[in-house]
């Protein structure tokens, strides 16, 4: 009985890991794998809207080579957007411009998109583990 339960939890843990990684890479994909269609679409649109607007406003996208702790925090937040971070250099072809207020808003919107996606990843992980519906 205990072994069966352990196997079930192990399977859930593996699925939860796959779902979490997928959800991080492509916002909403974790929920899509769990057949939560509406949530998958809403999370993709929410993260995508914030990330693309942040890039369109020419916000600053932090890299791992930042000089201080705040740059590193910004990098971790930005990295949360998954694929949007990876293609940000292509989309943001003009480079960042934080000399205008809009550029600064863009920096915050992109970081918000990353943190929001991490919340969505956590939600998908908890659903896969059976702790949420």
């Amino acid at each position: 009985m205990a072994e069966e339960q352990h196997k079930t939890e192990g399977g859930s843990a593996a699925l939860a890991t796959v779902v979490a990684v997928a959800g991080w890479l492509v916002p909403g994909l974790g929920h899509l794998l769990l057949r939560k269609w509406t949530r998958a679409l809403v999370y993709f649109l929410a993260v995508g809207t914030l990330a693309v607007t942040g890039l369109a406003l020419r916000g600053n996208i932090f890299s791992a080579l930042g000089g201080d702790a705040f740059d590193m925090l910004g990098f971790l937040a930005d990295l949360g957007t998954g694929v949007f971070y990876l293609v940000s250099r292509i989309i943001e072809n003009g480079g960042p411009d934080v000399s205008r207020a809009a550029g600064d808003y863009g920096t915050r919107l992109f970081a918000t998109a990353g943190v929001l996606n991490l919340l969505c990843v956590l939600d998908a992980h908890e659903i896969a583990r059976g702790r949420k519906t």
Binding site: Y43, L116, C120
Partner: peptide, 13 residues
């Protein structure tokens, strides 16, 4: 924009 997106996302979460 921020308020709309975050409100809807939090509601679904």
């Amino acid at each position: 924009l921020f308020a709309v997106v975050i409100s809807v996302a939090f509601a679904f979460l």
